[in-house]
Design a protein around this nucleic acid. Structure first.
Length: 511
RNA sequence: GGCCCGUUCGUCUAGCGGUUAGGACGCCAGAUUUUCAUUCUGGUAGCAGGGGUUCGAUUCCCCUACGGGCUACCA
């Protein structure tokens, strides 16, 4: 096989947004290439004109970009093996299809889709499955049955035809999958005569894929498990085209499964369970539907990549946090798991939390500012930074910052009913009123000194801390959450603190 | 239905003939925090079933069950 420089490709089709399984495939390709000092390229497989979705290609490229998985060759990037969009390589494929017909590895078939559909239905009514191939092809409308003269007449008359692979009979095709080991398929038992070239002048995936991988000098095909059944076809195609010596090796990745229920992860699972399935937000141009994205939901790309890497792969050590660079050092296909893995949204959050906590207060402040602006909050960077420093450890997403800190920027709109019921006693209002006087007399408005004055007063009165601290917190934040109370006072400022207490006493009395 | 792939705590996984079956997420408990959260400590829970092979099987082989994928002029 191939001893030259490692070259791998990620080859999505632009039929919609790339989902996280696709990103993982791209990631593993990328890591494999990096590890071996090879090249990672992007190729757009848009041979099905009927399924083209506007914006999908841009989405794919932007997603890879957000994840930092940048190809060295691809559409919009260029490279010596371009173009990298199969629709732009259309002319290339026909030649190879014809070559296969000439060499007897393929044949021309005139059967219309309707005819085949009928055969399929008929077989189905007999509880059988129709398959175009060994056993049936000799009796169908193709160049195997027709005389060459008839074939010529039909093609010259402009009749539509496809080119099908002529699957050799009873041949065991054995291939060493880099993840699964030896896999064997018997041609008669499991393979039919796949269409290689469609009547619309475009190749199918199978032909285009093999031709392009060869032309682009791809050394390793790393793709999803859904392609495993077509591996023997591809192997045979390389053989038929005479490219066996240089053909790539295969590795089939396990699939990502739904968190609960049956089957592989799909588009709508996310909205059902409240997690994104796509890297970026996607608005479907046809249905108008909107899907969540990791980016917009506040995940950091580092976290997204990290969680993806550990879904179906592990380093063999107990380390769980990895940068892309680290992964590039230690990634290997041997450590890819064979079975499909259920996606766990909880663990995904945990990964993000880790990266969130790694961020500096300064960085988080910058990320928080646009959110505050959106909320109509005006505050100095100094205050925002102070707040962020206090609440950082309670958050796992940038979006949590507001939920954990809104009371620093606006006074409570309501008071948590449960806390009121539990903590607000008959004389609480009067006691808190006295506290405002104490606060008013604090000269240096710093957490320490506020606490000092407060404690002295409490001791003098002989009041229980618990009986005052909790309702006091209620007045200032509206509930029983938040960091140290005196720090909150400090950040709020003396005036605001006192005013909030007074407002609360009034409002709660009315409840 | 046919073909192929797979099966270790609820989930992600380590294990590559002899281990008290390890870690992580989640969950539970305790400690700290005069709140809540964080943090720390501890706990809970697993080799799908049945046959072989072997002195010995989670580990190797076979069968069954279950799960997954494919079975288009879609990728």
């Amino acid at each position: 096989m191939n001893n030259s420089k490692v070259r791998v490709r990620f080859a999505p089709s632009p039929t919609g947004p790339l989902h996280m399984g696709g990103v993982r495939t791209a990631l593993f390709n990328y890591l494999f290439a990096k590890k071996l000092g090879g090249e990672f390229i992007l190729r757009i497989e848009d041979t099905d004109q009927t399924r083209f979705v506007p914006g999908a290609e841009e989405y794919i490229i932007e997603s890879l970009n957000w994840c930092g998985l940048n190809p060295v060759e691809g559409p919009g990037i260029g490279g010596e093996f371009g173009p990298y969009r199969q629709s732009e390589r259309k002319e290339i494929y026909k030649k190879y299809a014809d070559q296969l017909v000439e060499s007897g590895w393929a044949y021309i078939a005139f059967d219309t889709p309707e005819e085949i559909e009928n055969l399929r239905k008929k077989a189905e009514s007999n509880k059988e499955t129709f398959s175009y191939g060994i056993g049936t092809r000799e009796n169908l409308n193709n160049s195997l049955k027709l005389s060459s003269k008839e074939v010529q007449q039909k093609t010259e008359a402009g009749e539509n035809y496809v080119i099908r692979f002529k699957m050799p009979e009873d041949l065991d095709v054995t291939e060493e999958d880099l993840i699964r080991g030896q896999v064997t398929f018997n041609t008669t038992k499991s393979l039919d005569d796949k269409v290689l070239f469609k009547s619309d002048g475009m190749p199918t995936y199978h032909l285009a894929n093999v031709v392009d991988d060869h032309l682009m000098k791809i050394t390793h095909v790393i793709r999803g498990e859904e392609w495993l059944p077509s591996m023997p076809l591809h192997v045979l195609l390389y053989r038929a085209l005479g490219w066996e010596e240089t053909r790539p090796r295969f590795a089939h990745l396990p699939l990502i499964l739904k968190p609960v229920g049956k089957g592989k992860l799909s588009k709508r699972d996310g909205d059902k369970m409240g997690f994104p399935v796509f890297p970026l937000k996607w608005n479907d141009p046809e249905t108008g539907e909107s899907f969540h994205g990791y980016r917009e939901d506040g995940y950091f790309p580092e976290a997204f990549i990290n969680l993806l890497a550990l879904l179906g792969w592990n380093p063999g050590t107990e380390q769980e946090f990895f940068s892309v660079d680290e992964l590039s050092e230690i990634f290997s296909l041997e450590r890819v798991v064979k079975s499909g893995s259920r996606f766990d949204p909880e663990k995904a959050k945990w990964f993000n939390k880790h990266y969130f906590q790694q961020k500096s207060v300064e960085d988080l402040t910058q990320l928080f500012k646009p959110i505050l602006k959106e909320k109509g909050v005006v505050a100095t960077d100094e205050k925002i930074q102070k707040v962020v420093a206090e609440i950082k450890e309670r958050c796992e997403f940038v979006n949590d910052l507001w939920d954990q800190s809104s009371y620093f920027f606006e006074s409570p709109k309501e008071y948590d009913a449960q806390t009121v019921k539990k903590r607000w006693k008959e004389d609480t209002g009067a006691q808190l009123d006295e506290i405002t006087t104490v606060f008013d007399s604090v000269s240096t408005w710093k957490a320490d000194s506020i606490k000092e004055s407060f404690s002295a007063f409490m001791n003098e009165k002989g009041w229980g801390f618990g009986a005052i601290m909790n309702p006091l917190r209620l007045c200032l934040v509206g509930g029983n959450m938040g960091p140290d109370l005196f720090l909150i006072c400090e950040i709020l400022g003396k005036e605001e603190t006192i005013s909030r207490i007074k407002t609360a006493i009034e409002k709660i009395a009315k409840l």
